[in-house]
Amino acid sequence: MKITVLGGCGAWPGVGQACSGYLVEHEGFRLLLDPGYATLPRLLERVGAEEIDAVLVSHGHPDHCADLNPLLRARALGAEPPVALPVYALPGAVDAVLALDRPGMLDDSYRLDEFAAGAGFEVGPFRVASWALPHFVPNAGVRVSAGGRSVAYTGDTGPSPDVVELARGADLFLAEATYPEEVPREDHAFLSSARQAGEHAERAGVGRLLLTHLWPATPPDAALTAARRTYAGPVSVATPTTTFDL
Protein backbone atom coordinates (compact mmCIF):
# COMPACT_ATOMS: atom_id res chain seq x y z
CA MET A 1 0.00 0.00 0.00
CA LYS A 2 1.56 3.27 -1.14
CA ILE A 3 0.45 6.86 -0.54
CA THR A 4 1.70 9.79 -2.62
CA VAL A 5 1.00 13.38 -1.59
CA LEU A 6 -0.21 15.55 -4.47
CA GLY A 7 -0.84 18.60 -2.29
CA GLY A 8 -1.38 19.68 1.28
CA CYS A 9 -2.31 23.38 1.29
CA GLY A 10 -5.46 24.48 3.06
CA ALA A 11 -7.96 26.93 1.51
CA TRP A 12 -6.04 27.74 -1.70
CA PRO A 13 -2.84 26.51 -3.36
CA GLY A 14 0.26 28.48 -2.50
CA VAL A 15 3.00 29.17 -5.07
CA GLY A 16 4.18 25.85 -6.49
CA GLN A 17 1.74 23.96 -4.27
CA ALA A 18 -1.61 22.22 -4.47
CA CYS A 19 -4.47 21.72 -2.05
CA SER A 20 -5.47 18.41 -0.49
CA GLY A 21 -4.87 15.43 -2.76
CA TYR A 22 -3.47 11.96 -2.13
CA LEU A 23 -2.95 8.99 -4.43
CA VAL A 24 -3.41 5.66 -2.65
CA GLU A 25 -2.24 2.54 -4.49
CA HIS A 26 -2.42 -1.19 -3.82
CA GLU A 27 -2.19 -4.19 -6.14
CA GLY A 28 -2.28 -1.93 -9.20
CA PHE A 29 -5.48 -0.13 -8.10
CA ARG A 30 -5.27 3.66 -7.90
CA LEU A 31 -7.57 5.54 -5.54
CA LEU A 32 -7.52 9.35 -5.61
CA LEU A 33 -8.40 10.78 -2.23
CA ASP A 34 -9.61 14.42 -2.30
CA PRO A 35 -8.83 16.03 -5.68
CA GLY A 36 -8.45 19.60 -4.38
CA TYR A 37 -7.32 22.71 -6.27
CA ALA A 38 -4.23 22.19 -8.49
CA THR A 39 -3.87 18.48 -7.73
CA LEU A 40 -4.54 17.27 -11.28
CA PRO A 41 -1.26 18.60 -12.77
CA ARG A 42 0.59 16.87 -9.92
CA LEU A 43 -1.30 13.68 -10.58
CA LEU A 44 -0.59 13.78 -14.32
CA GLU A 45 3.14 13.93 -13.61
CA ARG A 46 2.78 10.38 -12.29
CA VAL A 47 -0.14 8.69 -14.07
CA GLY A 48 -2.66 9.40 -16.80
CA ALA A 49 -6.17 10.56 -15.96
CA GLU A 50 -7.52 7.34 -17.47
CA GLU A 51 -5.43 5.28 -15.03
CA ILE A 52 -7.34 6.41 -11.93
CA ASP A 53 -9.69 3.66 -10.79
CA ALA A 54 -11.80 5.53 -8.21
CA VAL A 55 -12.12 8.85 -6.36
CA LEU A 56 -13.03 9.32 -2.69
CA VAL A 57 -14.02 12.80 -1.46
CA SER A 58 -14.08 13.71 2.25
CA HIS A 59 -16.29 16.82 1.86
CA GLY A 60 -17.54 19.41 -0.58
CA HIS A 61 -15.19 22.36 -0.08
CA PRO A 62 -13.35 23.12 -3.34
CA ASP A 63 -9.88 22.78 -1.81
CA HIS A 64 -10.82 19.10 -1.47
CA CYS A 65 -12.75 18.39 -4.66
CA ALA A 66 -12.43 21.16 -7.30
CA ASP A 67 -10.05 19.20 -9.54
CA LEU A 68 -12.61 16.46 -9.97
CA ASN A 69 -13.89 18.61 -12.85
CA PRO A 70 -10.66 18.72 -14.90
CA LEU A 71 -10.02 15.06 -14.08
CA LEU A 72 -13.37 14.10 -15.58
CA ARG A 73 -12.80 16.43 -18.54
CA ALA A 74 -9.43 14.79 -19.21
CA ARG A 75 -11.14 11.41 -19.25
CA ALA A 76 -14.29 12.37 -21.16
CA LEU A 77 -12.62 14.45 -23.88
CA GLY A 78 -9.74 12.09 -24.61
CA ALA A 79 -9.45 10.09 -27.82
CA GLU A 80 -10.63 6.89 -26.12
CA PRO A 81 -12.70 7.73 -23.02
CA PRO A 82 -12.32 5.07 -20.32
CA VAL A 83 -15.16 3.48 -18.37
CA ALA A 84 -17.13 5.66 -15.95
CA LEU A 85 -15.06 6.63 -12.92
CA PRO A 86 -16.55 5.64 -9.54
CA VAL A 87 -16.75 8.73 -7.31
CA TYR A 88 -17.52 8.15 -3.62
CA ALA A 89 -18.80 11.19 -1.72
CA LEU A 90 -21.27 12.34 0.90
CA PRO A 91 -24.74 13.29 -0.42
CA GLY A 92 -24.54 16.57 -2.32
CA ALA A 93 -20.81 17.05 -1.68
CA VAL A 94 -19.74 17.18 -5.32
CA ASP A 95 -22.94 18.52 -6.88
CA ALA A 96 -21.45 21.98 -7.47
CA VAL A 97 -18.34 20.58 -9.14
CA LEU A 98 -20.35 18.24 -11.35
CA ALA A 99 -22.55 21.17 -12.41
CA LEU A 100 -19.69 23.27 -13.79
CA ASP A 101 -20.10 21.98 -17.34
CA ARG A 102 -23.09 22.01 -19.68
CA PRO A 103 -25.75 19.46 -18.74
CA GLY A 104 -24.86 15.95 -19.87
CA MET A 105 -21.30 16.72 -20.95
CA LEU A 106 -19.65 14.56 -18.31
CA ASP A 107 -22.50 12.16 -17.55
CA ASP A 108 -20.76 9.14 -19.06
CA SER A 109 -17.42 9.89 -17.40
CA TYR A 110 -18.37 9.11 -13.80
CA ARG A 111 -20.58 6.99 -11.56
CA LEU A 112 -21.55 8.76 -8.35
CA ASP A 113 -21.74 6.50 -5.29
CA GLU A 114 -22.97 8.55 -2.33
CA PHE A 115 -22.42 7.21 1.17
CA ALA A 116 -23.44 8.27 4.67
CA ALA A 117 -20.70 9.16 7.14
CA GLY A 118 -20.40 6.18 9.46
CA ALA A 119 -20.80 3.68 6.66
CA GLY A 120 -18.21 1.12 5.58
CA PHE A 121 -17.72 -0.03 2.00
CA GLU A 122 -15.20 -1.51 -0.41
CA VAL A 123 -13.38 0.31 -3.20
CA GLY A 124 -11.34 -2.10 -5.31
CA PRO A 125 -8.92 -3.85 -2.91
CA PHE A 126 -9.52 -1.24 -0.21
CA ARG A 127 -11.83 -1.42 2.77
CA VAL A 128 -13.11 2.05 3.73
CA ALA A 129 -14.52 2.93 7.15
CA SER A 130 -15.92 6.41 7.75
CA TRP A 131 -16.78 8.74 10.63
CA ALA A 132 -18.83 11.96 10.68
CA LEU A 133 -16.40 14.63 11.90
CA PRO A 134 -17.34 18.27 12.66
CA HIS A 135 -16.66 20.87 9.99
CA PHE A 136 -18.43 23.84 8.37
CA VAL A 137 -20.04 21.39 5.94
CA PRO A 138 -20.66 17.63 6.33
CA ASN A 139 -17.27 15.90 6.44
CA ALA A 140 -16.27 12.25 6.52
CA GLY A 141 -13.06 11.15 8.14
CA VAL A 142 -12.01 7.93 6.41
CA ARG A 143 -9.78 4.97 7.16
CA VAL A 144 -8.54 3.13 4.07
CA SER A 145 -7.13 -0.37 4.63
CA ALA A 146 -5.58 -3.04 2.43
CA GLY A 147 -2.96 -5.74 2.80
CA GLY A 148 -2.90 -5.43 6.57
CA ARG A 149 -2.01 -1.72 6.42
CA SER A 150 -4.12 1.39 6.90
CA VAL A 151 -4.12 5.14 6.43
CA ALA A 152 -6.48 7.31 8.47
CA TYR A 153 -7.50 10.71 7.09
CA THR A 154 -9.50 13.36 8.92
CA GLY A 155 -10.58 15.51 6.01
CA ASP A 156 -11.13 18.80 7.88
CA THR A 157 -12.35 18.54 11.45
CA GLY A 158 -12.87 20.26 14.74
CA PRO A 159 -12.45 18.51 18.11
CA SER A 160 -14.13 15.11 18.36
CA PRO A 161 -13.40 11.87 20.25
CA ASP A 162 -14.05 10.08 16.96
CA VAL A 163 -10.75 11.39 15.59
CA VAL A 164 -8.86 9.07 17.93
CA GLU A 165 -11.13 6.16 16.98
CA LEU A 166 -10.53 6.91 13.31
CA ALA A 167 -6.76 6.92 13.78
CA ARG A 168 -6.34 4.14 16.33
CA GLY A 169 -3.36 1.97 15.37
CA ALA A 170 -3.17 3.32 11.81
CA ASP A 171 0.17 2.99 10.04
CA LEU A 172 -0.18 6.55 8.71
CA PHE A 173 -2.36 9.28 10.20
CA LEU A 174 -3.05 12.07 7.72
CA ALA A 175 -4.33 14.86 9.95
CA GLU A 176 -5.66 18.33 9.18
CA ALA A 177 -3.49 20.92 10.94
CA THR A 178 -4.59 24.29 9.62
CA TYR A 179 -2.98 26.18 12.51
CA PRO A 180 0.22 25.31 14.44
CA GLU A 181 -0.75 25.87 18.09
CA GLU A 182 -4.17 27.45 18.60
CA VAL A 183 -7.29 27.54 16.48
CA PRO A 184 -9.03 30.96 16.43
CA ARG A 185 -12.32 31.08 18.32
CA GLU A 186 -14.43 31.43 15.18
CA ASP A 187 -12.91 28.23 13.75
CA HIS A 188 -12.45 26.30 16.97
CA ALA A 189 -15.33 23.87 16.47
CA PHE A 190 -14.51 23.14 12.82
CA LEU A 191 -10.72 23.06 12.30
CA SER A 192 -7.66 21.66 14.09
CA SER A 193 -4.10 22.58 15.01
CA ALA A 194 -0.87 20.65 14.62
CA ARG A 195 -0.70 20.42 18.40
CA GLN A 196 -4.13 18.78 18.50
CA ALA A 197 -3.13 16.43 15.68
CA GLY A 198 -0.14 15.36 17.76
CA GLU A 199 -2.36 14.74 20.78
CA HIS A 200 -4.69 12.57 18.70
CA ALA A 201 -1.79 10.68 17.14
CA GLU A 202 -0.27 9.94 20.55
CA ARG A 203 -3.56 8.74 22.03
CA ALA A 204 -4.31 6.62 18.96
CA GLY A 205 -0.87 4.99 18.85
CA VAL A 206 -0.33 5.63 15.15
CA GLY A 207 2.81 4.62 13.31
CA ARG A 208 3.43 8.00 11.70
CA LEU A 209 1.78 11.43 11.70
CA LEU A 210 1.51 13.42 8.48
CA LEU A 211 0.30 17.01 8.92
CA THR A 212 -1.76 18.46 6.09
CA HIS A 213 -4.07 21.37 5.18
CA LEU A 214 -1.65 23.94 6.64
CA TRP A 215 -2.69 27.53 6.02
CA PRO A 216 -0.62 28.59 2.97
CA ALA A 217 1.54 31.05 4.92
CA THR A 218 2.23 28.68 7.82
CA PRO A 219 5.93 27.73 8.11
CA PRO A 220 6.15 23.92 8.12
CA ASP A 221 8.65 24.05 10.99
CA ALA A 222 6.09 25.78 13.21
CA ALA A 223 3.59 22.96 12.59
CA LEU A 224 6.23 20.28 13.18
CA THR A 225 7.38 21.88 16.43
CA ALA A 226 3.80 22.09 17.72
CA ALA A 227 3.01 18.46 16.83
CA ARG A 228 6.22 17.16 18.38
CA ARG A 229 5.26 18.68 21.71
CA THR A 230 2.41 16.19 21.97
CA TYR A 231 3.46 13.23 19.77
CA ALA A 232 6.63 11.20 20.28
CA GLY A 233 6.60 9.34 16.96
CA PRO A 234 7.77 10.34 13.47
CA VAL A 235 6.00 13.37 12.07
CA SER A 236 6.24 15.26 8.77
CA VAL A 237 4.32 17.80 6.69
CA ALA A 238 2.48 16.81 3.52
CA THR A 239 4.47 18.16 0.57
CA PRO A 240 3.94 17.33 -3.12
CA THR A 241 5.54 14.11 -4.40
CA THR A 242 6.26 12.78 -0.90
CA THR A 243 5.58 9.03 -0.94
CA PHE A 244 4.98 6.58 1.91
CA ASP A 245 5.28 2.87 1.20
CA LEU A 246 3.44 1.09 4.00
Rank of each mutant, 00 (worst) to 15 (best):
G48W: 05
G48N: 07
A49M: 13
A49G: 11
E51H: 03
D53K: 12
D53A: 11
A54F: 07
A54S: 07
L56K: 03
L56T: 04
V57W: 02
V57N: 00
V57Q: 01
S58L: 12
H59K: 06
H59Q: 06
G60V: 03
D63E: 11
H64L: 13
A66P: 01
A66D: 08
L68F: 01
L68V: 04
L68Q: 01
L68D: 02
L68I: 02
L68T: 00
N69H: 15
N69D: 15
L71E: 00
L71C: 04
L72T: 01
L72A: 03
R73W: 13
R75D: 09
A76H: 08
A76R: 12
L77P: 14
L77Y: 15
L77A: 15
L77F: 15
G78H: 05
A79R: 13
A79G: 09
A79D: 14
P81F: 12
P82L: 08
A84D: 03
A84Q: 02
L85W: 12
L85P: 14
Y88T: 07
Y88L: 04
Y88R: 02
L90R: 14
L90E: 15
L90Q: 15
P91Y: 06
P91L: 07
G92Q: 10
G92S: 09
G92H: 09
G92L: 09
A93D: 01
V94R: 00
V94F: 00
D95I: 12
D95Y: 12
A96Q: 04
V97E: 06
V97K: 05
L98K: 05
L98N: 04
L98S: 08
A99E: 02
L100H: 09
L100A: 10
L100K: 10
D101P: 06
R102L: 12
P103A: 12
G104R: 07
G104A: 07
M105E: 03
M105R: 04
M105A: 08
L106V: 03
D107Q: 12
S109N: 14
S109V: 14
S109L: 14
